[in-house]
Amino acid sequence: MRNVADLPLHGGHVPQWLAQRMRKLTQLVLRLAVEEYGTRGLLERLSDPVWFQAFNNVIGMDWDSSGSTTVTAGMIKDALWREELGVKAAGGKGKRSRATPEELKAISKLYDLDPEPYIRTSRLVAKVDTVALQTGYQLYHHVFFLDEEGNWAVIQQGMNERERMARRFHWFDAETFILDPHKAIAGLQREFALNTVTKEAKEYQKTLLDVVQERPEKIEWELESLKAIARGYRSLVYYKPREPWERDVIKRYESLGRLELNKKALEFAKEMSVNNYEEFLLLKGLGPSTLRALSLVLELVYDVHPSWKDPVTHPPDPFKFTYAVGGKDRVPFPIDKPAYDELISFLEELVSKHPQEKALVRNVTKITKNWKFPEWEKRAT
């Protein structure tokens, strides 16, 4: 995983006059990015939430809107299919996300790749962000980018309906999905998160794989005993003296959702002798409530713990993002149509230029690379 960003849920839609300009500008920026950095370089930048957010602002979306993810990713996907740049995208919002496997097959056929590893990766990153790392967000958006060399990136977003917030997850060519897969995380840090994909949880993962080889009925009995303790009952038989803090641990788990085991998933794990945490996460029927229940048993019965640290490292900062033509919701200022059209015209001319002429533009970007927004001009939006 690359990064994560928290965004408030916003309503509204993109007007047609703006959508048409967004499509043109998106296509131009993607062409220039691939020419400059190659397809892998483009994917790496899409996996950086600050770069992605800046891209979002350049085309006229708002910096703090949950819709920025779905609209911008959708514009990028559309542009990549309209033009052959050596990279395509699959999936999308809601029902479109469920079409990801079939679309990955089409992309793989186009680039002469085996689709199965990418379909597995698509399923696994979704399982990690809903099951293995739990912060109260339910995924509803998943876009998978794949280039002709087999490099990939994923942008997916989850929603917390109670808090009306969304969190965005970025992935890029992850070597491991179960040990600190994040390079950095940008978002609002929560007080705690059930995190089972960190180096701190290696012993947890190992013990969990051992425990699921037990009879599901035994695990269920242990869970029900712990839930009874949380309700104030004192069991006649227990593994060790119960402390008051243990009720707080149970309440912490319950704050994330229900504690219920899917016995069929546990039966699958036992029958298949699952000994790899990635394969365990991919088990049919394994959802957030089952992993929460198993984690509680591990903590209070086996004294083996996951991490409770939310792996956020970078809080969102609107002044890191680029405002070129204004914002759809008139923040920080209304869309400047003449400036937007002039920008498109300039980039269209730039795309057609000789490579040596483009080098002049690169030199300008080097000069402005370390420019910082003046502190005295910062205003809350």
Rank of each mutant, 00 (worst) to 15 (best):
I155R: 12
Q27Y: 04
D129C: 08
G74Y: 06
F144C: 12
E116W: 05
P306T: 00
L28T: 09
A174S: 10
N3C: 11
E163V: 10
P315A: 02
Y277A: 07
G86F: 02
Y253I: 07
E243V: 13
Q138K: 15
Y111F: 04
W376N: 14
H305Y: 00
S352E: 15
R242I: 15
P241F: 13
L113W: 00
D341R: 15
K109H: 11
R258A: 15
L283F: 05
T69D: 01
L80K: 02
T368R: 12
V364I: 15
N370K: 15
Q189G: 06
L282Y: 06
E271H: 09
N3H: 11
V14R: 08
K378L: 05
R362N: 11
K183Y: 04
V331A: 03
M272N: 14
K206M: 10
D112E: 10
R45M: 13
V128Y: 08
V34H: 00
Y239A: 14
T135R: 15
D6C: 08
H314M: 15
A380E: 14
R167Y: 05
P15Q: 12
L188T: 10
P101N: 02
G326S: 01
L347Y: 14
S307W: 02
L266R: 05
V301L: 03
E35G: 11
S345V: 00
A265D: 09
L266W: 04
W308Q: 02
I367L: 15
T70N: 10
S255A: 11
H314Y: 11
M75N: 06
A153R: 12
A5D: 12
D210A: 12
R258Q: 14
S68T: 06
E357Q: 15
V154H: 10
Y140T: 07
Q157K: 06
I155C: 12
N160P: 09
S225D: 09
N57H: 00
E279G: 07
D248P: 00
E299S: 06
E214V: 05
L282R: 08
D48L: 05
E243D: 12
A126I: 06
L208Y: 01
I335D: 10
A186N: 11
G92N: 13
V4L: 14
A230D: 09
S352C: 00
L208H: 00
N363K: 15
Y118T: 04
S352Y: 03
R2N: 14
F333E: 11
L9R: 04
P101A: 04
F145G: 12
R164T: 06
A186D: 09
A359F: 11
V331N: 02
L110F: 00
V331L: 08
R40G: 03
N370F: 11
G74T: 09
A54T: 14
L223D: 04
P8W: 03
L42I: 07
A174T: 07
P374W: 13
N160K: 07
A324R: 09
M272V: 01
R120P: 00
L18Y: 06
Q213R: 01
P316L: 03
N57L: 02
